[in-house]
């Protein structure tokens, strides 16, 4: 028997009350929102509960919404997958713009270790309780979090740089 979305919604609402919200289908994946203080427990429930059995973490990533209000500046998105029932679920948690932080889920999924490090690296989202939260792709000396929207791509028509130093022109003296 397939895992019914309505049952997931009912069970989670029963357990977490108003900490889980906005259930709905979004491009054929059942999605909902959870508050940051409940997210660890929600994911633990989804994994451990025998009926849910979402045992596989497909993806974990950050998103920056600069136009949202102060409490919804960042989002962490979790994609879980139950292979037995073949159903997927997407959980979003919104974080505040100042010092965004959320509990780690490395105790539930080993693979989230590197994913959380990447999210920290690129968005500056702090995962509380992560065993080794340091930059993974960028160099340690870097001080910014480059996937934030306040860092736009360099304007390709920029003229204040001397192209000779970047190997872009052969001769320009």
């Amino acid at each position: 028997m397939a895992l019914e979305n309505a049952i997931i919604q009912e069970k989670l609402t029963q357990k977490f009350g108003n900490k889980v919200l906005n259930f709905g289908m979004s491009k054929d994946i059942f999605s909902f929102e959870a508050t940051p203080d409940a997210i660890h427990e929600v994911i633990r429930t989804l994994k451990v509960d025998e009926e849910f059995n979402f045992h596989f973490l497909t993806d974990l990533c950050g998103i920056h919404y600069p136009d949202n209000d102060e409490n919804h500046q960042f989002a962490v998105v979790y994609h879980l997958h139950n292979w037995v029932e073949n159903s997927r679920i997407r959980i979003t948690t919104f974080l505040a713009g100042e010092n965004p932080e959320v509990n780690t889920i490395t105790d539930l999924f080993l693979t989230s270790n590197w994913m959380e490090r990447e999210t920290w690296d690129f968005y500056g989202i702090n995962f509380k309780g992560h065993p080794q939260l340091k930059r993974i792709l960028n160099m340690d000396e870097m001080i910014s979090h480059p996937m934030r929207k306040e860092f736009p791509m360099e304007d390709s028509g920029r003229t204040d740089k001397d192209d000779r130093f970047f190997g872009r022109t052969a001769q320009k003296l």
């Binding site: 993974i136 960028n138 160099m139 860092f151 791509m153």
Partner: peptide, 11 residues
Amino acid sequence: IGYIHRAFEKI
């Protein structure tokens, strides 16, 4: 692992 990270997402 990041030596040849090419920032595709940003591009």
